[in-house]
């Protein structure tokens, strides 16, 4: 009886230690395989000059990976330059900016987004889908967008 119990215990210990060792190795392998954080590299891409975009106007630009965005000048004092993806989250049509109404409009099914990319009408409002935001950096009079490079 004693021997059996001891034998069982030892087997447990053996399996446990083996499991721990190889298990940790397995964890390392998992980390090894998982795509490296931030490996979708982002870069600061020059878009244009602040004085080239009058208030309420917009300019379209594309990232090196082909994503299209709209950079808008909302005319607001604090943070007038914003950028959002110009691809409608509903079915992928290109939205356009209406400066007078300070909104993005999708011509395909009437999706409308406010100046902050939030859906207010149409299918995107129903499905609560916003326009993806793209960070803008202003240095002097230069406008940069933080876009994905790979």
């Amino acid at each position: 009886m004693e021997n059996d119990r001891r034998s069982f215990f030892l087997s447990l210990l053996t399996l446990g230690s083996l499991g721990a060792g190889y298990g940790l190795f397995g964890f390392f392998s998992g980390r090894f395989l998982y795509p490296v954080e931030g490996s979708a590299r982002t870069a600061k891409m020059f878009v244009g000059f602040t004085d080239e975009i009058p208030p309420r106007e917009s300019v379209q630009f594309a990232s090196p990976t082909g994503e299209t965005f709209l950079l808008t000048n909302t005319g607001d004092g604090v943070d007038p330059y914003q950028a959002y993806s110009s691809v409608c989250p509903h079915l992928g049509c290109q939205v356009h900016w209406e400066g007078d109404h300070q909104r993005f409009v999708c011509p395909c099914h009437g999706g409308i987004f406010d100046a902050a990319g939030r859906p207010v009408a149409g299918p995107p409002a129903r499905d609560k889908q916003s326009l993806k935001q793209c960070s803008i950096v202003v240095e002097g009079r230069s406008l940069y967008a933080l876009v994905e490079v790979t």
Binding site: R6, S7, L10, S11, L13, T14, G16, S17, L18, A20, G21, L24, F25, F28
Partner: peptide, 22 residues
Amino acid sequence: ETKKVVVSILSLFFLGSLLIVA
């Protein structure tokens, strides 16, 4: 039984070396 003990000890050494790797 001795073998089981040895295996356990060596596994722990292996584990230790992996901790150094980490």
